[in-house]
Nucleic acid binder design. Structure first.
Lengths: 294, 294
DNA sequence: CCCCCGTTTTTTATACATAAGAAACATATG
DNA sequence: CATATGTTTCTTATGTATAAAAAACGGGGG
C-alpha cells in the first residue's frame, strides 16, 4: 500500500509555518495552506486533523487557532518523508558507488527488491527511469546490466557537456543588457564569493551551488534535452563525490575560482574569453572526475 | 499474467528455419536453435513440443526429424508476437499523433490503461521510459502532462541533432583510409541509389534507411548519449510521418539526394564541404518537419 | 570432460488489489 | 455569489500473485 510520506512531509512543513505565527493566532484557510504546502487539500486536512489531535491547533467555530507551539521533536524523521521510489534511488546509488558493482555486473530485479526491502514494481520503475543516465542497459526478458562508472562513461558525459555548455555560454555574448539573467549572474558571483570566504567550513555546500550555476547558464536558451541532460550531470556529481571525498576541499575551491573566472568572462561579452574560461573549467572538471575514478 | 509472445515469435521464426531444411532432415540441437532463435532453451523446447504436437516434427530416439513442411497459415498473427509493452507503445503513439491530444493535455494512467485494455503497471512503465522523448512531463503525485508535438519541440530537437550530427560528420575528415566505415558508406550510397531508382514504388522504405544512415554517421565515435538521442529522432520520424503522409514521396526524394551529397562530402574529407552538406540536409529536414506540424 | 537433454529453481512480465492523495462535488456561511 | 469547509469519487503509489521465460542443475552418452 501507498506510504504516507506526502502527509508527513506536509506535517513537518506545517510546523515551520505555524512557528511564524503567534500563539492564539488564526490560521489561514485550507486552500491558502494548500498552496503554501504544495499538496492537495485532502492532505492539508489530514495535517490539520493530526495537529488538532495533538493540541497544537484548536478548532473553534469556523476557525482554527494555534493552541500550542509545536516542538521540533514532533517532526517526522526525514526518512519517513521520502517516497519509496526516492529511497530506492539512494539505496541503488549507494549499492553502485560503494563498489558492490563493477562493469558488466548483472542487475537482478528480484534480488534488488529483496536487498532494498521493496516491491519489485518499484525497482522496475526505478530502473526504467534510471536508464537515461547511461549506466545501465536492458536486455530483453533478462534483466539489466550495469555498464560501470568507468572512464569512458566520464569521457562521453563530458563530450556532451562541453557541447551543451559552450553553446549556452556563447549565447551570453549576445544577451541584451536588460536581460534579467545578468542580475542572477551577479548574485551567483556573490554566492561563490561567500562560499569561498568560508571555504574551510562550508566546502560541502559547493555541490549544490555548482548544479545551480550550470543550470543558470543553460537557461538563457531553454532546451528540454539540454535540461534533461543536466539531471544526468547533477546525479553523477552528487552521488559520485558523495563516495569519493578525496581532496574535496581543494577540488571545490579550484572549481569556485573557475566559476568566478567564467562569470567574469560572461560579463565581458567577449566570445573568445567566454570560450576560453568555459573550456578551461570543463577540462579541469573532467580531469578531476577521471582522476577520482581511476 | 505474462503473455507468451516470446514463444509465438520463436514459433514463427522456427517455421522459417525449418523451411530451410529438407523433409526428413535432422534438426540442430536445442542449444544451437537457442542461439539461432535468440531465446532461452526453455522456449525452444516449448516450440519443439508445439511442433511435435502438430506433426511438423517427429521425435525419435535422441533425434528430431522434420515430418511435415509447416504451412504459413500455422504462424501466429503478428499482434500476438508483440509484448504488451510494445503494443502499448503503438497505441500511445496513435493516440498522441491522431490528435486526440493537444499541448497541455493531462495524461491519466488509469484512463489510458482502460482505453488500451492493459494493466496500469504497464502504462506507468511505458510513461517512465517515454519520458526521455521530451514529450511528456511528470507531476508529483498527479499524473503526467503531454507537452505537445509542437514547433518548439521540433526546434529543440533539431538544435541538439545539429550539434551531434555535425560533430560526427566532422570526424570523418580525419578518418583513416583503412577504416571499415568507408565500406559501409559505400553500401549506404548504393542503397540510396537503388531506392532512388525505384522511388515511385518504394518511397516508404526511406524512413528506415534514413535512420540507419544517421546512425552510421554517429558510430564513428560512439557516445552512449548521442546514440540514445538517435532513438528520439527515430521515434519522432517513424511515428510522426506515419500520420502525416503529405508530400511523402517528394520529401523523401529530396532527403535521399541530400544524403547522397553528404556522402560525397564525407568522402572528400574536406571539412568545409562536409559542414555545408550536413547543415544543408539538417536545415531542410527541420523545415520539412516544421512545415508538417503547422 | 564436453555436449545433449530432462528437471528444478529463479526471474521477469503482467495483472490485480488497496491505502494515500488529488480532484470534483456539495453544502454552508458571511 | 464568493469563499471555506465537509463529502464523495477518482487516481496514483506501492504491494502481492502468477504464468511465461530464463537460468541453473544433473545425469548420460560420446
Amino acid at each position: 500500500m501507498r506510504t504516507d510520506t506526502t502527509f508527513k512531509r506536509a506535517f513537518n512543513d506545517m510546523i515551520d509555518i505555524i512557528r511564524t505565527f503567534d500563539l492564539g493566532a488564526e490560521l489561514p484557510s485550507e486552500n491558502a495552506l494548500r498552496t503554501q504546502l504544495g499538496v492537495s487539500r485532502t492532505t492539508v486536512r489530514k495535517v490539520l486533523a493530526g495537529m488538532s489531535a495533538r493540541g497544537i491547533i484548536i478548532s473553534e467555530a469556523h476557525k482554527r487557532i494555534i493552541g500550542e507551539r509545536p516542538r521540533q521533536q514532533e517532526r517526522y524523521p526525514k526518512e519517513q518523508t521520502l517516497a519509496i521510489s526516492e529511497q530506492v534511488e539512494t539505496s541503488f546509488m549507494e549499492w553502485m558507488m560503494r563498489g558492490d558493482a563493477c562493469a558488466g555486473t548483472e542487475i537482478n530485479e528480484t534480488e534488488l527488491a529483496r536487498k532494498f526491502g521493496v516491491a519489485t514494481t518499484i525497482i522496475r520503475e526505478f530502473l526504467n527511469r534510471f536508464q537515461k543516465y547511461g549506466l545501465i542497459e536492458k536486455r530483453q526478458n533478462a534483466g539489466w546490466v550495469f555498464k560501470g562508472f568507468t572512464a569512458s562513461f566520464a569521457l562521453e558525459l563530458f563530450e556532451i557537456r562541453e557541447m551543451f555548455e559552450m553553446r549556452s555560454a556563447r549565447l551570453f555574448a549576445a544577451l541584451p543588457d536588460r536581460s534579467p539573467v545578468w542580475k542572477q549572474i551577479q548574485s551567483m558571483r556573490a554566492a561563490h564569493l561567500e562560499l569561498l570566504a568560508d571555504i574551510d567550513a562550508r566546502f560541502q555546500d559547493f555541490s549544490e551551488l555548482d548544479s545551480r550555476f550550470h543550470r543558470l547558464i543553460t537557461t538563457v536558451a531553454p532546451n528540454r534535452f539540454i535540461e534533461s541532460f543536466q539531471d544526468v550531470i547533477t546525479m553523477v556529481f552528487h552521488y559520485h563525490y558523495q563516495w569519493n571525498k578525496r581532496d574535496e576541499r581543494a577540488r571545490n575551491e579550484v572549481a569556485i575560482r573557475e566559476h568566478l573566472a567564467l562569470i567574469e568572462a560572461l560579463e565581458s561579452r567577449n566570445i573568445v574569453l567566454i570560450d576560453r574560461a568555459c573550456r578551461l573549467h570543463l577540462t579541469s572538471a573532467r580531469e578531476t572526475l577521471l582522476h577520482s575514478i581511476a
